Simulated assay, not measured.
Amino acid sequence: MTSAVDQQRVAGLRSQRIILGSSSFARKQIMTELGKEHGFSYEVRTADIDEKAIRDPNPEMLVRLLARAKREAIIAKMKAAGEPLQGLLITCDQVVVHEERILEKPGSVDEAHEYIDGYGRSPASTVGAVLATDLGSGRAAEDVETSYIHFRPIPEDVRARLIEEGEVFYCAGGLMIEHPLVEPHIERMDGTQCSVMGLPKHLVLRLMLEAAGL
């Protein structure tokens, strides 16, 4: 249960300009839910960076670096547009780790098949970074969260339908746990659904409060 003090802190977000630096449908959906739960609204900006230009063998460091790069790209766009640097900017990134490999968005049909087929052999983990930055003060807070998903084998016809729909190409590892074709093949999850989908609500809220100094 949220304490009265915590509720007062969260209430402080309602007067803040909040910017989600992501074009992900799933992240926007989660952020909308979070806003409804706590009474704040948000707007969207996109970074449009070349994510593959940023590399690190450590998945936690990789997602941190990508979240920071997205922040810098959005700030640069705002400056170029003469937009005042005000508000809380939320940037994030996520990769899937499977059998010690970092999986990002599938680059081909074959790669998507390979990724999704592999989840039936062994669990996958999602490693996601969230970075909250107060654009006025420069104060920032970031953290990484890892969740684990255990799958039953995903049949070839299901993989083919997912790939034909095309959304898997916009998801790290082609992983779409919320999809009705995928849900029946999930054995269990160690972590929250919003974390696996790329934007853990509890983490976003905590980091926004820290960055805002609330």
Rank of each mutant, 00 (worst) to 15 (best):
T2A: 13
T2P: 12
V5I: 14
D6N: 14
Q7N: 07
R9G: 06
R9T: 06
A11V: 08
R14D: 14
S15C: 05
S15Q: 10
S15H: 07
R17C: 08
I18D: 00
I18L: 07
I19F: 01
L20H: 05
S23Y: 02
K28N: 10
I30G: 11
M31H: 08
E33G: 13
L34R: 04
G35P: 06
G35E: 08
G35Q: 09
K36G: 15
H38Q: 13
G39V: 09
G39W: 09
Y42T: 03
Y42L: 04
E43P: 01
E43Y: 02
I49R: 06
I49S: 07
D50M: 10
K52L: 12
K52P: 01
I54W: 06
P57Y: 11
E60N: 14
M61D: 12
R64Q: 08
R68F: 09
R68M: 11
A69K: 13
R71T: 03
A73T: 02
I74D: 05
I74T: 10
M78T: 03
M78P: 03
G82I: 03
E83S: 12
E83C: 09
E83A: 06
Q86K: 10
I90G: 02
C92F: 04
D93C: 10
V96S: 04
H98K: 06
I102F: 06
L103I: 01
E104G: 11
K105S: 03
S108D: 10
S108F: 09
V109W: 06
D110P: 05
A112Y: 12
H113P: 00
D117R: 15
D117E: 14
G118S: 09
G118I: 00
G120F: 05
R121G: 00
S122D: 08
S122T: 13
S125N: 07
S125C: 11
T126D: 07
T126G: 08
V127K: 00
G128W: 01
A129Y: 04
T133W: 03
D134C: 05
G136L: 06
S137Y: 07
A141I: 00
D143A: 15
D143N: 14
T146Q: 13
T146G: 08
S147C: 13
F151I: 11
F151C: 11
P153R: 07
P153H: 09
P153D: 07
I154W: 03
E156R: 14
E156L: 11
D157S: 09
R159K: 13
R161C: 09
I163F: 07
E164D: 12
E167K: 14
G174P: 05
I177P: 03
P180N: 12
L181I: 10
V182T: 15
E183T: 06
P184A: 14
P184H: 14
R188M: 09
M189H: 06
M189Y: 04
D190E: 15
Q193F: 01
C194P: 03
G198R: 01
L199S: 02
P200I: 11
H202Q: 15
L203D: 09
V204E: 05
L207P: 11
L209K: 13
A212D: 09
L214I: 03
